[in-house]
Amino acid sequence: MCRWMAYSGEPILAEDLLFRPEHSLIDQSLHSRLGATTTNGDGFGVGWYGIGAEPAVYKSIEPAWNDRNLREIAGQVRTPMLLAHVRASTGTAVQRSNCHPFRHGRWLWVHNGALRGFHETRRDLLAAVEPALFAEIEGSTDTETLFYLALTFGLVDDPFGAVARAVGFVEDVGHAYGVDHPVQMTVATTNGEFLWVFRYSSERQSRSLFFSTELSALRALHPEVEVLRELGSETRFVVSEPLRDLSGAWNEVPESSAGVVGAGADAIRSFEPIAPG
């Protein structure tokens, strides 16, 4: 399906996140090891926070490994929060408006997975989006629909609860259409200050997702690895696949769970959808 990565920490060059790791997201766009598809070449996107009031987004329908502009930009952008995504379409068009991350105000959103039966349920799902938000939807993906449902259900004020209500609604609509397992997802969303992540599927067999070990512990395990000394102490990664093979560096996000990353706020909790009404 897709692969994504999220970074939170001290400002760092985007190229150090996207290109430098031995199994970087750019490498995963060609050689995914854990994804449903080996190649993720149906476009890509990067979202990051800088000096503006809203995050910047760069998207293209070109394969990530073949975009010279991405490499140019990545060598000049320094950011404390970045979301990046390489896409393998699950049936919707390969067009810029369907590439992740999706943006609303200060919020970014990426997703790996699918809302099964989306062709049949799409009308009902979109009808539930807050009218004031509906006009902002530009593409045709299930991911953007899920994002705007989460916004409708209160993402800005209550990310955990809003995503639980959005997923519960999607499952309720899917079941009404005879879809056995409507939701398959790993999701990351951020407002630039905190990062929230989710791993859930209706059949409890979710796509892969990992978070990085706390940096001081990792430095103690691997004092010989120079790159660990270059990273800030607040460094946190959440990734579809580990970015390098380093023992003790990566921890699987538990099935049916959600987490938050930010200054003084790293925590994982169980995740269950909240059914409508």
Rank of each mutant, 00 (worst) to 15 (best):
D16P: 02
S256Q: 14
A220D: 10
G35W: 06
H23I: 10
G117A: 06
F271Q: 03
G113D: 07
E10D: 15
G264E: 10
G75Q: 15
Y200G: 00
H111K: 10
T92R: 00
S270P: 00
T79F: 00
L221C: 10
P242N: 10
S140W: 04
A164T: 00
D27K: 07
W48E: 00
A265W: 07
L13N: 04
A263K: 11
V260H: 04
A249N: 08
G192P: 07
H111D: 10
E136R: 13
L30R: 06
A14K: 03
Q76R: 15
S216T: 14
H181I: 03
F160D: 13
T143A: 12
A164P: 04
G192H: 07
I274G: 02
L243C: 06
A220S: 10
H100Y: 01
E171W: 06
H85C: 09
R68S: 15
E230A: 13
T152K: 09
H111C: 08
Y7C: 08
R106C: 05
S212P: 08
R165C: 01
D124L: 07
V239R: 03
S202R: 09
T90E: 03
A176C: 01
V225R: 01
I268W: 15
E54L: 05
L83F: 11
A135L: 13
F134I: 01
H175V: 08
A164F: 04
W109Y: 14
P242M: 08
V94H: 09
A56K: 12
S140M: 07
D67C: 12
D124A: 12
Y200R: 02
L70W: 04
D124H: 09
A188I: 13
G232E: 06
L125G: 01
A56F: 14
V77E: 00
D266L: 13
L82A: 05
Y7N: 07
R96G: 10
T152E: 11
G192D: 13
G91I: 06
T39G: 02
L82H: 03
R96V: 12
I26R: 03
L228M: 09
S97G: 07
W250E: 05
R68H: 14
F147R: 00
E234C: 08
A14I: 04
P242S: 08
C2W: 02
F102M: 06
A56E: 15
A114T: 07
T79A: 08
E214K: 09
R204F: 11
L34D: 12
S208W: 07
N251V: 12
R106W: 04
A265H: 11
S216D: 15
F194M: 13
H222A: 00
R33H: 11
G232A: 10
V197H: 01
S24Y: 05
A128N: 08
T39A: 09
V239F: 02
D158S: 15
